[in-house]
């Protein structure tokens, strides 16, 4: 398991550095804006008050926009579940199904390692990859904060939004992993999970505007995402629920992986029996 864990992290070095450094630099750049914003707070508050409430709601805005936590939430963490969520979905769906479809899984499982070892070696590697990206993003924020006069959040305090984001990403990644174990192909699993992530993001964004939408939104994980506001105080109950839901998907995926056939390399996927209904039957020869 340890060998596969190390292999998973090693083969994702590019993803960690690419995503982590990009988001770290973005965080640094955004934090550097805060001083300008805080210095002109009174003037900007007047200007922003003209924004329609739909715009504020969609971007996760709060009345307390000028506090460091709210600023970092709106400018960075409010859309991270969508941005990094897509990464988590792609990585989660290809974690095992990608190896299967390429044919690499046959080679791995031809060695004396159990399916449980393969599964958790890959999964814990995925967790470390996410932690690596979030750590670089966090470092970018903290480095930016060293030059800021007005933004003064502690290192531990600023880690909390990342923890809230991690729970969200693990849930999306776990869902994609589970779908990749039950759906015919990795691509289909990524599409379905990606669609759910995007829908969850949009519905949650609109929930502030309509009570009907809010009724639906309370069943979606985005509702329980605190983002940058976690720096003010983490809702550990929400965090535990999200982590619990992620664990359920991961365990279901593990159960399925241990029980089912390994796909033939190069096959690309299975047929969807349910969709055969839609196929037109060929005309019978007389």
């Amino acid at each position: 398991m340890l060998t596969l864990f190390k292999h998973t992290v090693a083969r994702s070095k590019g993803a960690i550095l690419g995503w982590g450094l990009s988001l770290g630099l973005l965080s640094l750049w955004l934090v550097s804006f805060y001083d300008t914003l805080a210095a002109q707070r009174e003037m900007l508050e007047k200007a922003f008050s003209a924004w329609p409430k739909e715009i504020w709601a969609f971007f996760g805005g709060t009345a307390d926009f000028f506090s460091p936590e709210a600023f970092i939430n709106m400018e960075l963490y409010s859309y991270m579940p969508l941005v990094l969520g897509i990464f988590a979905v792609l990585a989660g769906s290809s974690l095992l199904a990608g190896d299967e479809e390429k044919g690499f899984m046959d080679l791995l499982l031809g060695h004396p390692i159990g399916r449980t070892g393969v599964f958790f070696g890959r999964f814990f590697g995925f967790v470390v990859v996410l932690l690596g990206i979030l750590t670089l993003m966090w470092l970018g924020t903290m480095i930016g904060m060293q030059w800021s006069t007005y933004m003064d959040l502690g290192w531990g305090q600023m880690w909390l939004p990342n923890l809230a984001l991690l729970a969200q990403l693990l849930l999306f990644g776990g869902l994609a992993l589970f779908l990749s174990m039950v759906l015919p192909s990795q691509r289909l699993a990524a599409s379905v999970a990606g669609g759910l992530v995007a829908a969850s993001f949009l519905i949650n964004g609109m929930a502030e505007l309509s009570t009907d939408v809010a009724k639906v939104a309370k069943y979606l994980p985005m509702k329980y995402y605190q983002g940058g506001l976690a720096a003010k105080g983490m809702n550990w109950e929400w965090f535990a629920w999200l982590m619990g839901a992620a664990a359920v998907f991961v365990l279901l995926a593990w159960w399925r992986f241990v029980k089912r056939d390994i796909r033939v390399g190069g096959e690309g996927g299975w047929k969807v029996p349910a969709l055969r209904f839609w196929r037109r039957r060929p005309a019978r020869a007389e």
Partner: peptide, 28 residues
């Protein structure tokens, strides 16, 4: 058992030697 799959796929990012070291690790 020593197994060679019919549809052999290796890790493209590794050298042949690194690939064999990785698989050897799996074999203890």
């Amino acid at each position: 058992v020593g197994y060679l799959p019919g549809e052999l796929q290796l890790d493209d990012n590794l050298t042949g030697e690194a690939q064999l070291h990785f698989l050897n690790e799996l074999r203890g």
